[in-house]
């Protein structure tokens, strides 16, 4: 997990649909509510203000009825080709972000299909998150190795 220019996650997916529709699926709450979240989740609340500075807020509802709120802010909206948003990936009990992820979603149309690429960068939010991320990249690796050794021999 890197904090910097190198993306932490890149996912590309081709959808058999025109770009305008795929783009709308991200910016229209009516559409978003239908697909956002893991399998078997529904979205009890879905608010999208798709413009720079606008808020996205989705309350995902798990199979057991637990609500998992997701919030974010749109940094860029370039219809129909690019969306940049910052999502709160992990928050503390009071809802303060501990970890934020900047997701850049690009839409490229070819032959009536749309290639979507999502690039995620983990960005620092708080000292806690900064520690966890820096740690994972550097010191934690060693710590984990030591731990692995310990588990093996101990």
């Amino acid at each position: 997990m890197a904090v910097g220019n190198k993306p932490d996650l890149v996912i590309t997916r081709v959808f058999d649909a025109p770009r305008s529709l795929v783009f709308a699926a991200w910016t229209d709450s009516k559409h978003l509510a239908q697909w956002w979240g893991p399998r078997d989740f529904t979205n009890a609340r879905c608010e999208v203000d798709a413009r720079p500075g606008g808020i996205i807020r989705i309350d995902m509802c798990g199979p057991d009825g637990t609500i998992y709120p997701m919030t974010g802010t749109f940094d860029e909206i370039v219809e129909p080709e690019r969306i940049v948003m910052t999502n709160v990936a992990i928050a503390d009990d009071a809802g303060n972000p501990l970890l934020e992820v900047r997701n850049t979603i690009t839409f490229v149309e070819a032959n009536g299909k749309t290639a979507l690429t999502m690039t995620a960068h983990v960005i620092k939010a708080t000292p806690e998150a900064a520690f966890a991320l820096d740690g994972m990249e550097e010191g934690w690796k060693q710590t984990l190795e030591r731990l692995a050794d310990f588990v093996k021999t101990g």
Binding site: L9, I11, R13, D16, V22, A25, W35, G37, P38, A120
Partner: peptide, 19 residues
């Protein structure tokens, strides 16, 4: 986090097909 998105994209795929 990756899994979460992969599953969302599966659903988006289905949803677009349906639309």
């Amino acid at each position: 986090y990756e899994q979460y998105w992969m599953q969302s994209f599966d659903r988006l795929d289905d949803y677009l097909t349906e639309l």
